[in-house]
């Protein structure tokens, strides 16, 4: 398990952050996602054998936002 932080500069409200956290339910290998509109970032705890940072960035993009690894 690793924990990585991503910057998501185009979050516009708290609901957008909640939308990113909902990726917990769809992304295989994710243990926990904490997204913060206040900090414009998300922290993802995931199993690196099942998921990559690039796949997370792609999933975020699919949700309508842009993520970059810190």
């Amino acid at each position: 398990m690793i924990k990585q932080t991503f910057k998501v500069p185009d979050l516009t409200c708290s609901n957008c952050a909640l939308k990113l956290e909902a990726l917990e339910d769809t992304l295989r290998g994710v243990k926990q996602i904490n997204a913060s509109y206040h900090k414009l970032e998300m922290t993802v705890e995931y199993d690196e054998t099942q998921l990559s940072a690039q796949a997370i960035i792609a999933a975020v993009k699919h949700s309508g936002y842009t993520a970059t690894l810190v």
Binding site: C13, S14, N15, A17, L18, K19, E21, A22, D25, N34, S36, Y37, H38, L40
Partner: peptide, 27 residues
């Protein structure tokens, strides 16, 4: 001013997500 946006506690958002139709119901 981003801190004026309500961020509900994580345990509440998880509960809502698992039980309700959408996360946007909380506010």
């Amino acid at each position: 001013f981003r801190y004026f946006s309500i961020e509900p506690p994580k345990f509440i958002t998880r509960y809502i997500r698992q039980t309700a139709k959408g996360v946007e119901t909380f506010t």
